[in-house]
């Protein structure tokens, strides 16, 4: 028996919005420790890694490990049926071929039950090596989304260069070029507005804008985003999901042909 309850269904809605650009279907691996999802996009350029800890749920029970393959378009249709203030409970029996979603309004005046058929998906788990990143940038997630959107107008790719002075985002194409520099913030009132750079060595990497823009669909989940970079390895873009967990995106760089 698996059961996971979240008072704020809005979090699950946002998680879904954050992954459905990159993935059409995915397996949710449920265990005693929580729910995990790891999947690559079709082109094998990016990877989504979602971790929702069991202790972050308002109720959580998972007697046996369970892998639930879901079509994310169909899951989105069902999650759209939940009111913003509703509580959501996901339930499945052991070895079930369906997952149940129950939405309850405040005071349980309205209770809606939906069942979705599960799919058998080929699981392609990747081992992600432990990496000591040369640069870790923490910045406001909305600022990052804005930069990705703005620079996408100039070219398909953007370079991210990090030194201890700051981080520079640049793009160039037919219409011209764009450069955005962000300095580390000296002192800010709100922690979430800060730009913080931890640098061991300067790094400059180039990435496809299309994927970065897809990652920024996670912006509503967190006020801050963390970019981890080392020369010639995939970028990690991480959004914390409150006390519940995190979503990490890995993106392979574009390299000199």
């Amino acid at each position: 028996m698996f059961e996971a309850r979240l008072v704020q269904s809005a979090i699950l809605k946002k998680v879904l919005e954050a992954i459905k650009d990159l993935l059409t279907e995915a397996t949710f691996d449920c265990s005693d420790s929580g729910i995990q999802l790891q999947a690559m996009d079709n082109a094998h350029v990016s990877l989504v890694s979602l971790n929702l800890r069991s202790d972050g749920f308002d109720k959580y029970r998972c007697d046996r490990n369970l892998s639930m393959g879901m079509n994310l378009g169909n899951m989105t249709k069902i999650m759209k049926c939940a009111g913003a203030e509703d509580t959501v409970t996901m339930k499945a029996q052991d070895n079930a071929d369906v997952v149940a979603f129950m939405f309850e309004s405040k005071n349980q005046e309205k209770v809606s039950d939906y069942e979705m058929k599960l799919m058998n998906l080929d699981q392609e788990h990747l081992g992600i090596p432990e990496t000591d990143y040369s640069c870790i940038v923490k910045m406001p997630s909305q600022e990052f989304a804005r930069i990705c959107r703005d620079l996408s107008q100039f070219g398909e790719s953007m370079a991210i260069s990090c030194t201890k002075e700051g981080v520079k985002f640049s793009s160039a194409g037919d219409i011209g070029s764009a450069n955005i520099k962000l300095a580390q913030t000296a002192n800010v009132d709100a922690e979430e507005e800060a730009v913080v750079i931890e640098m061991q060595e300067p790094v400059s990497l180039t990435f496809a804008c299309r994927y970065l823009n897809s990652f920024t669909k996670a912006t509503p989940l967190s006020a801050q985003v963390q970019l981890s970079m080392s020369a010639d390895v995939p970028l990690v873009v991480e959004y914390k999901i409150g006390e519940l967990g995190h979503i990490r995106y890995y993106l392979a760089p574009k390299i000199e042909d």
Binding site: L47, L126, P234, Y250, L251, A252, P253
Partner: peptide, 14 residues
């Protein structure tokens, strides 16, 4: 010219 590489160049299937 830069080319996009696959994530599979970095991460191994487990």
């Amino acid at each position: 010219k830069r080319k996009q590489v696959s994530l599979l160049n970095f991460f191994k299937k487990s």
